[in-house]
Amino acid sequence: MKNLLKKEILLTMHPTAILFLFLSALLIVPNYPYYVTFFYTGLAVFFTCLNGRENNDVFYTMTLPVAKKDIVKARFILIIILELLQMLIAVPFAFIRQNIGLPGNAVGMDANIAFFGFSFILLGIFNVVFFGIYYKDVKKVGKPFAVSSVVIFVYICIAEICAHIVPFVRDCLDTSDNMYVTEKLVVLIEGIIIYAVMTAIIYKKSRRNFEVYDI
Protein backbone atom coordinates (compact mmCIF):
# COMPACT_ATOMS: atom_id res chain seq x y z
CA MET A 1 0.00 0.00 0.00
CA LYS A 2 2.90 2.34 0.77
CA ASN A 3 4.15 1.88 -2.79
CA LEU A 4 0.74 2.53 -4.29
CA LEU A 5 0.35 5.70 -2.24
CA LYS A 6 3.77 6.81 -3.43
CA LYS A 7 2.57 6.21 -6.99
CA GLU A 8 -0.63 8.16 -6.33
CA ILE A 9 1.29 11.14 -4.94
CA LEU A 10 4.25 11.22 -7.36
CA LEU A 11 2.45 10.31 -10.56
CA THR A 12 -1.33 10.51 -10.37
CA MET A 13 -2.16 13.41 -8.06
CA HIS A 14 -2.69 16.59 -10.04
CA PRO A 15 -0.48 19.47 -8.79
CA THR A 16 -3.54 21.71 -8.36
CA ALA A 17 -4.68 19.35 -5.58
CA ILE A 18 -1.99 20.93 -3.40
CA LEU A 19 -2.87 24.47 -4.53
CA PHE A 20 -6.55 23.91 -3.78
CA LEU A 21 -5.66 22.98 -0.21
CA PHE A 22 -4.55 26.55 0.33
CA LEU A 23 -7.97 27.76 -0.79
CA SER A 24 -8.98 26.85 2.74
CA ALA A 25 -7.79 30.41 3.34
CA LEU A 26 -11.09 31.55 1.77
CA LEU A 27 -12.56 31.12 5.22
CA ILE A 28 -10.87 34.36 6.20
CA VAL A 29 -12.85 36.36 3.61
CA PRO A 30 -15.41 38.46 5.55
CA ASN A 31 -18.44 37.55 3.45
CA TYR A 32 -18.33 34.45 1.27
CA PRO A 33 -20.26 31.19 0.75
CA TYR A 34 -17.65 29.27 2.74
CA TYR A 35 -18.92 25.84 1.62
CA VAL A 36 -17.50 26.60 -1.84
CA THR A 37 -14.04 26.01 -0.32
CA PHE A 38 -14.84 22.30 -0.20
CA PHE A 39 -16.12 22.28 -3.75
CA TYR A 40 -12.46 22.91 -4.66
CA THR A 41 -11.55 19.66 -2.89
CA GLY A 42 -13.94 17.92 -5.28
CA LEU A 43 -12.27 19.72 -8.15
CA ALA A 44 -8.90 18.37 -6.98
CA VAL A 45 -10.34 14.84 -6.92
CA PHE A 46 -11.70 15.35 -10.43
CA PHE A 47 -8.36 16.65 -11.75
CA THR A 48 -6.52 13.74 -10.15
CA CYS A 49 -8.85 11.14 -11.69
CA LEU A 50 -8.71 12.99 -15.02
CA ASN A 51 -4.92 13.08 -14.84
CA GLY A 52 -4.97 9.33 -14.23
CA ARG A 53 -7.18 8.71 -17.23
CA GLU A 54 -5.13 10.92 -19.55
CA ASN A 55 -1.95 9.14 -18.48
CA ASN A 56 -3.19 5.54 -18.74
CA ASP A 57 -2.83 5.19 -14.99
CA VAL A 58 -5.10 2.18 -14.68
CA PHE A 59 -3.22 0.23 -17.34
CA TYR A 60 0.16 1.12 -15.82
CA THR A 61 -0.96 0.26 -12.30
CA MET A 62 -2.56 -3.01 -13.38
CA THR A 63 0.74 -4.20 -14.87
CA LEU A 64 2.38 -3.76 -11.46
CA PRO A 65 2.27 -6.54 -8.88
CA VAL A 66 -0.72 -5.17 -6.97
CA ALA A 67 -4.24 -6.41 -6.31
CA LYS A 68 -7.04 -4.60 -8.11
CA LYS A 69 -8.81 -3.84 -4.84
CA ASP A 70 -5.69 -2.09 -3.52
CA ILE A 71 -5.72 0.30 -6.48
CA VAL A 72 -9.09 1.58 -5.24
CA LYS A 73 -7.88 1.61 -1.64
CA ALA A 74 -4.87 3.77 -2.50
CA ARG A 75 -7.04 6.26 -4.40
CA PHE A 76 -9.45 6.51 -1.46
CA ILE A 77 -6.61 7.01 1.02
CA LEU A 78 -5.21 9.82 -1.13
CA ILE A 79 -8.62 11.48 -1.44
CA ILE A 80 -9.38 11.17 2.29
CA ILE A 81 -5.98 12.68 3.09
CA LEU A 82 -6.72 15.61 0.76
CA GLU A 83 -10.17 16.13 2.25
CA LEU A 84 -8.94 16.02 5.82
CA LEU A 85 -6.05 18.34 5.03
CA GLN A 86 -8.49 20.80 3.45
CA MET A 87 -10.46 20.76 6.73
CA LEU A 88 -7.38 20.99 8.90
CA ILE A 89 -5.89 23.93 7.01
CA ALA A 90 -9.27 25.69 7.14
CA VAL A 91 -9.43 25.59 10.96
CA PRO A 92 -6.93 28.41 11.72
CA PHE A 93 -8.51 30.64 9.06
CA ALA A 94 -11.96 30.06 10.54
CA PHE A 95 -10.52 30.90 13.95
CA ILE A 96 -8.96 34.13 12.65
CA ARG A 97 -12.18 35.09 10.81
CA GLN A 98 -14.16 34.71 14.04
CA ASN A 99 -11.74 36.80 16.04
CA ILE A 100 -11.07 39.82 13.85
CA GLY A 101 -14.08 41.63 15.21
CA LEU A 102 -16.18 41.73 12.04
CA PRO A 103 -19.90 40.86 12.02
CA GLY A 104 -20.91 37.32 10.93
CA ASN A 105 -20.89 36.14 7.31
CA ALA A 106 -23.61 38.05 5.46
CA VAL A 107 -23.74 35.50 2.63
CA GLY A 108 -24.67 32.52 4.74
CA MET A 109 -23.21 30.20 7.34
CA ASP A 110 -20.41 31.49 9.58
CA ALA A 111 -17.13 29.58 9.55
CA ASN A 112 -17.80 27.94 12.91
CA ILE A 113 -17.81 24.47 14.47
CA ALA A 114 -21.20 23.54 12.97
CA PHE A 115 -20.02 24.72 9.54
CA PHE A 116 -17.28 22.08 9.65
CA GLY A 117 -19.89 19.43 10.51
CA PHE A 118 -22.00 20.43 7.50
CA SER A 119 -18.86 20.51 5.35
CA PHE A 120 -18.00 16.94 6.34
CA ILE A 121 -21.48 15.93 5.15
CA LEU A 122 -20.83 17.83 1.90
CA LEU A 123 -17.63 15.86 1.29
CA GLY A 124 -19.36 12.59 2.20
CA ILE A 125 -22.07 13.31 -0.37
CA PHE A 126 -19.43 14.25 -2.94
CA ASN A 127 -17.58 10.97 -2.38
CA VAL A 128 -20.74 8.90 -2.70
CA VAL A 129 -21.90 10.59 -5.90
CA PHE A 130 -18.50 10.95 -7.58
CA PHE A 131 -17.02 7.52 -6.84
CA GLY A 132 -20.39 5.79 -7.21
CA ILE A 133 -20.31 6.77 -10.88
CA TYR A 134 -16.54 6.88 -11.47
CA TYR A 135 -15.75 3.28 -10.56
CA LYS A 136 -18.44 1.94 -12.87
CA ASP A 137 -16.31 3.18 -15.78
CA VAL A 138 -13.02 4.87 -14.96
CA LYS A 139 -12.70 6.13 -18.53
CA LYS A 140 -15.56 8.55 -17.91
CA VAL A 141 -14.44 11.21 -15.45
CA GLY A 142 -16.60 14.09 -16.69
CA LYS A 143 -19.93 12.49 -15.84
CA PRO A 144 -19.20 11.82 -12.13
CA PHE A 145 -17.84 15.35 -11.76
CA ALA A 146 -20.81 16.96 -13.52
CA VAL A 147 -23.35 15.04 -11.45
CA SER A 148 -21.50 15.50 -8.15
CA SER A 149 -21.08 19.25 -8.85
CA VAL A 150 -24.82 19.67 -9.35
CA VAL A 151 -25.56 17.72 -6.16
CA ILE A 152 -23.00 19.74 -4.19
CA PHE A 153 -24.38 22.99 -5.61
CA VAL A 154 -27.89 22.03 -4.48
CA TYR A 155 -26.54 21.03 -1.04
CA ILE A 156 -24.71 24.35 -0.66
CA CYS A 157 -27.83 26.29 -1.71
CA ILE A 158 -30.01 24.41 0.78
CA ALA A 159 -27.43 24.79 3.57
CA GLU A 160 -27.03 28.52 2.98
CA ILE A 161 -30.78 29.11 2.67
CA CYS A 162 -31.28 27.24 5.95
CA ALA A 163 -28.78 29.62 7.55
CA HIS A 164 -31.14 32.45 6.63
CA ILE A 165 -34.60 31.02 7.13
CA VAL A 166 -34.56 27.99 9.46
CA PRO A 167 -34.70 29.46 12.99
CA PHE A 168 -32.56 26.75 14.67
CA VAL A 169 -29.80 27.06 12.07
CA ARG A 170 -30.02 30.86 11.86
CA ASP A 171 -30.25 31.61 15.56
CA CYS A 172 -28.28 28.75 17.08
CA LEU A 173 -25.86 27.18 14.58
CA ASP A 174 -25.02 30.25 12.47
CA THR A 175 -23.49 32.14 15.36
CA SER A 176 -20.10 32.86 16.81
CA ASP A 177 -18.37 29.91 18.49
CA ASN A 178 -18.68 31.38 21.96
CA MET A 179 -22.40 30.51 21.82
CA TYR A 180 -24.27 27.17 21.56
CA VAL A 181 -21.04 25.16 21.61
CA THR A 182 -22.76 21.90 22.57
CA GLU A 183 -25.24 22.08 19.68
CA LYS A 184 -22.45 22.89 17.25
CA LEU A 185 -20.26 20.07 18.55
CA VAL A 186 -23.15 17.66 18.05
CA VAL A 187 -23.43 18.82 14.41
CA LEU A 188 -19.66 18.44 13.96
CA ILE A 189 -19.60 14.92 15.40
CA GLU A 190 -22.65 13.91 13.40
CA GLY A 191 -21.01 15.39 10.29
CA ILE A 192 -17.83 13.39 10.88
CA ILE A 193 -19.82 10.19 11.43
CA ILE A 194 -21.92 10.75 8.30
CA TYR A 195 -18.77 11.48 6.28
CA ALA A 196 -17.04 8.34 7.59
CA VAL A 197 -20.05 6.08 7.00
CA MET A 198 -20.77 7.45 3.52
CA THR A 199 -17.11 7.17 2.49
CA ALA A 200 -16.79 3.62 3.89
CA ILE A 201 -19.93 2.49 2.04
CA ILE A 202 -18.87 3.99 -1.28
CA TYR A 203 -15.35 2.61 -0.85
CA LYS A 204 -16.72 -0.93 -0.58
CA LYS A 205 -19.04 -0.38 -3.52
CA SER A 206 -16.20 1.11 -5.59
CA ARG A 207 -14.02 -1.92 -4.89
CA ARG A 208 -16.78 -4.21 -6.12
CA ASN A 209 -17.45 -2.11 -9.22
CA PHE A 210 -13.75 -1.85 -10.13
CA GLU A 211 -13.19 -5.57 -9.56
CA VAL A 212 -15.62 -6.52 -12.35
CA TYR A 213 -14.61 -3.63 -14.63
CA ASP A 214 -12.90 -4.68 -17.89
CA ILE A 215 -9.94 -2.49 -18.76
Binding site: N3, K6, K7, L10, L11, N55, N56, D57, F59, Y60, L64, P65, V66
Partner: peptide, 23 residues
Protein backbone atom coordinates in the same frame (compact mmCIF):
# COMPACT_ATOMS: atom_id res chain seq x y z
CA UNK B 1 1.31 -2.36 -24.51
CA UNK B 2 3.59 -0.97 -27.21
CA UNK B 3 6.18 1.33 -25.65
CA UNK B 4 5.79 3.31 -22.44
CA UNK B 5 2.41 4.95 -22.96
CA UNK B 6 1.72 6.24 -19.48
CA UNK B 7 2.70 9.44 -17.69
CA UNK B 8 4.20 10.88 -20.83
CA UNK B 9 5.13 14.17 -19.16
CA UNK B 10 6.86 12.74 -16.10
CA UNK B 11 10.60 12.28 -16.11
CA UNK B 12 11.80 8.72 -16.60
CA UNK B 13 13.60 8.86 -13.26
CA UNK B 14 10.30 9.49 -11.46
CA UNK B 15 8.54 6.68 -13.32
CA UNK B 16 11.47 4.38 -12.54
CA UNK B 17 11.53 5.44 -8.91
CA UNK B 18 7.85 4.61 -8.51
CA UNK B 19 7.95 1.40 -10.57
CA UNK B 20 10.97 -0.13 -8.88
CA UNK B 21 9.42 0.10 -5.43
CA UNK B 22 6.86 -2.53 -6.44
CA UNK B 23 9.39 -5.22 -7.39
Amino acid sequence: LGGVNYYLNKKLKIITNVTKSFY
